[in-house]
Design a protein around this nucleic acid. Structure first.
Length: 466
RNA sequence: GGUGCCAUCGCCAAGUGGUAAGGCCGCAGCCUGCAAAGCUGCUAUCCCCAGUUCAAAUCUGGGUGGCACCUCCA
């Protein structure tokens, strides 16, 4: 397996520290608002990575955190006159439900910041003990970036001493502008935690390092985790700071491989909280099947920026439709899973830094060959078995094609409409039997008015929602 | 201003030195009562200029045009 390591900026062979086992940590959401398409993209990318690692025989331990301590959460709780826990529970639950609709498997471990405070305190204490952190007069604890000679080696940045930064930070007690908070002293009626360093709240960067130490890290390993992932925006400062903390507090580096997924733009514009054009997943899921969104968001390589628009989504659906049409042609047949050349090739392209385009091309070609044979030699039992095996391999590895094909094609159609269409199809069948094509075509127009496609087959007439 | 990424057919999108995958759209045909679906065939020399090389979309330099990060963000 090959992975593009965004720290070294090259694609290199993936070799885990322990034979056959992989530890993966991904930065998860701060639960103060609904998940948007960017959260979905990130979760999808690492879901795919886990599936591909598993298919390669690795036993994967995957941790993704839930940040439930944050100023934005506190602000929202105050605005809505709710407790912190009410806010974080609500959005954590929503996140889980929406990700499940996209076919994303839950990580093995989902640590919460509120449950990881001890690990954070321990990390701060180590950094204070070995002089990589310092306390300020007002009780804050800062990481001393000047004490880490490898600082900025991850993001390959040059130290920014611009006037702008100096002005912004001039009010704090930091030694250097680049220093970041490990502990923020807060002594008022808002949410605080009693730490060995006084009342306050932890710095955001700290929790990931602490959770990794607590849940994934082996004391003697050279790297705390094999793979650390997240959105491209997290490379700096978040991951840079995480890496610095871990490097200075422990005897190992944070990650052997770093993976960063590209951004999701909406109709060519950056989606961001400050611009207020976030496309919430819950809204997208009202209009599109979760599986279609999964297919669409995964259809472009994970490192590329992704430009979301409805036309491309419709095109992606057509491509997924083809998977389900061939599944429909073979519906009801049983098979035993068998290894095929196609499956080897598919695993091969996905194992090359998750080359999804090459993988989808293989799938399209496999489907075309299957349809071709089914058209010309309908009783080809061996091909049917092989195709069914391939489809179930695709389900396992890529997470789409799992539904009943008839249900897939009728997403979002209510029962009343389904009954009406069924009645009309029956009427049309009768007209067709009587060779009254004028009448049957008139009925077809009625059916098509429900925004569906009608297709006659030897097994009868079927319809699909467009 | 600093740093980095990208530019491939109308659209989406692979391909990082050996002579352009795949999907959508379009056109023609097979199939069909007619359709739909499916199948077959057709459609690019890779932003521009210069260079390296037997050979470049792929490497180097310059240019043009997008974008991102440097502040919370997946």
């Amino acid at each position: 397996m090959f992975i593009f390591d965004s720290a070294k900026k090259i694609k290199r062979e993936f070799i885990p520290q322990v034979d056959g086992k992989v530890s993966l940590y991904v930065c998860g959401p701060t639960v103060y608002d609904d998940a948007h398409l960017g959260h979905a993209k990130s979760a999808l990318v690492f879901d795919l990575l886990c599936r591909v690692l598993s298919a390669n025989g690795y036993e994967v331990t995957y941790a993704r955190n839930i940040t439930d301590i944050d100023d934005k959460i506190i602000k929202k709780a105050l605005e809505q006159n709710k407790t912190i826990k009410e806010i974080t529970d609500f959005y954590t639950d929503a996140y889980h439900k929406e990700m499940a609709l996209l076919g994303i498997k839950r990580p093995n471990i989902e640590p919460k910041a509120t449950e990881s405070l001890d690990a954070m305190y321990a990390l701060i204490q180590k950094l204070l003990d070995n002089k990589h952190a310092y306390k300020t007069a007002n009780g804050d604890v800062y990481f001393d970036t000047s004490s880490d000679n490898e600082y900025l080696t991850l993001s390959k940045r040059v130290q920014d001493d611009s006037d702008k930064l100096q002005r912004v930070e001039s009010s704090s007690h930091k030694k250097n502008a680049a220093d970041f908070a490990l502990w923020k002293s807060v002594d008022d009626d808002s949410v605080t935690f009693d730490s060995p360093f006084g009342k306050g709240r932890p710095g955001w960067h700290l929790e990931c390092s602490a959770m990794i130490e607590k849940h994934l890290s082996k004391p003697d390993a050279k790297f705390a985790v094999d793979i650390h992932g997240g959105g491209a925006d997290l490379l700096f400062p978040h991951h840079e700071n995480e890496a610095a903390q871990t490097r200075c507090a422990t005897n190992h580096a944070l990650a052997a491989y770093w993976m960063h997924n590209g951004f999701v733009n909406i109709d060519g514009e950056k989606m961001s909280k400050s611009l207020g054009n976030s496309f919430f997943l819950k809204d997208a899921l009202k209009i599109y099947e979760g599986e279609v969104l999964r297919f669409y968001l995964l259809s472009t390589h994970y490192r590329s920026n992704f430009n979301f628009n409805e036309e491309d989504l419709a095109t992606a659906k057509k491509r997924l439709d083809k998977v389900y049409r061939v599944k429909k042609r073979l519906f009801g047949l049983t098979h035993e899973n068998e290894k095929t050349l196609f499956q080897n090739e598919l695993l091969g392209t996905l194992s090359d830094d998750l080359n999804i385009s090459a993988s989808l091309a293989l799938i399209d070609e496999m489907i075309t060959r299957a349809n071709e044979t089914l058209d010309t030699a309908g009783k080809h039992k061996e091909l049917k078995r092989e195709t069914l095996s391939n489809l179930s391999y695709i389900e396992k590895l890529l997470g789409f094609g799992e539904k009943n094909p008839y249900e897939y094609f009728q997403f979002g159609v209510d029962e009343e409409t389904k009954t009406k269409i069924a009645t009309l199809i029956q009427m049309r069948d009768e007209a067709k039997s009587a060779k009254d094509f004028a009448a049957s075509d008139a009925i077809r127009d009625e059916i098509l008015a429900y925004n569906v496609n009608l297709m006659d087959t030897p097994q009868g007439s079927f319809w699909e929602k467009i």
